[in-house]
Write a protein that binds this DNA or RNA. Sequence first.
DNA 1: TGCGTCAGTCAAGATTTCGTCAAGATGGAC
DNA 2: GTCCATCTTGACGAAATCTTGACTGACGCA
Lengths: 231, 231
Amino acid sequence: MTDRSKIVVIDDELEMRRFLKHSFDPAETEFFEADNGVEGLRVVARTNPDVVLLDLGLPDMDGIEVAKQLREWSQVPIIVLSARGREKDKIEALDAGADDYLTKPFGVGELLARIRVTLRHVSRVKGAIVEPVFEVGDLKVDLPKRRVLVNDVEVHLTPIEFKLLAMLIRHAGMVLTHRQLLIEVWGPAYSDETHYLRVYMGQLRHKLESEPARPKYITTEPGVGYRLLTE
Amino acid sequence: MTDRSKIVVIDDELEMRRFLKHSFDPAETEFFEADNGVEGLRVVARTNPDVVLLDLGLPDMDGIEVAKQLREWSQVPIIVLSARGREKDKIEALDAGADDYLTKPFGVGELLARIRVTLRHVSRVKGAIVEPVFEVGDLKVDLPKRRVLVNDVEVHLTPIEFKLLAMLIRHAGMVLTHRQLLIEVWGPAYSDETHYLRVYMGQLRHKLESEPARPKYITTEPGVGYRLLTE
DNA sequence: TGCGTCAGTCAAGATTTCGTCAAGATGGAC
DNA sequence: GTCCATCTTGACGAAATCTTGACTGACGCA
């Protein structure tokens, strides 16, 4: 971490953003802010920060939803800062992909210490970062914007199709087993519904491949799963 | 994480240990306990757990000290469970190497959610750092990605072929008996079907060796089994 | 030499898994 | 309520994989 750490704060309260801004040393930290969820996602996509501080009570969308959407294309550590102190909220946030949960009001010292912890994790993980824009052949996928282009023409994907494709992209080049895909996209209760995969892989190929019957991108590993080719 | 997760609890209060023990599903979790710091360090060393739950108020040494000593040789995630709620304690613990800090009393649900978060980190790190790519001669095998290259050209293996090769690689250089291979790949009921091995070793050689009739990699140990040469 | 055992090769079914199509079922917007 | 996009489910031919058996050759041994 030779460079300054980049931090994004997503919170609608101006005072909270100011308070946080003054909690960091500008010599060590680049500070970005957003006052709603949509803007927050955009800022994260643009700045590729080291940590995201996320408030749950946003004007346009729930913070949990922001965390989930972020997790579809980014591994950035998310620390939730919330006035909601109920256990249920914490569990939900953590399971949605948050890395830590602090209940307001909190001490600056503790926040900084918890940020240090997450940065420790990141430095261990680095190398597993995924570019937010995936490109191979005629296919371009901008995960944060949820846009898919084939030959520079936008293609519409349904929610499940997109989730499937995002999962394949996050592990591009690797074989993902039927089980892994089903659990990640449909949930643990669906881990045996391999038929869903056949149907949806077919739909994806139909939308993305020039020759769906002879796929260039999404290949089948018979008896095992599927793989997205990287070149 | 096919196996059960291993959890070590270091806490001097018997009730707390019992409470925690009953919070986990024994089908998913192996549970170890220690009621003081020295014993705790020993248990961690012996069991190599996935998570450590650490109380700060131990009879023989301070929990912070336990965390520091642990960090000298282990990366295992540490979640501190403490009655001390002061910010100073939290900061100290987190900077000593703890990954999270929960103030007693806490809800089981939240604890479990935070454990899930740390396990998520671990599995990410494991996948990122360990790179078990096997290489010998013209043959490259990336087990996690399930990719096999011969002369940098990808070769497709069927599920059984891949399982066989993976088994050989995990024990490269050693002789694996017919029995061992059959039990591992086909299951205990097939331990006498040596004919399967002949057929599949033939197929593997055909796909991997330049001269299948005079194999460089997969050699036969007559009457015993097969061996994958390492150089 | 003749016999039995073991290993390797080949290929024909048998079986499992895939891809495709399309008809309901579902659920949200209006 | 209707309409629309999406998801779920079933049916069936195609493809890949697995199993099985027949045949060959190598080797050791009586």
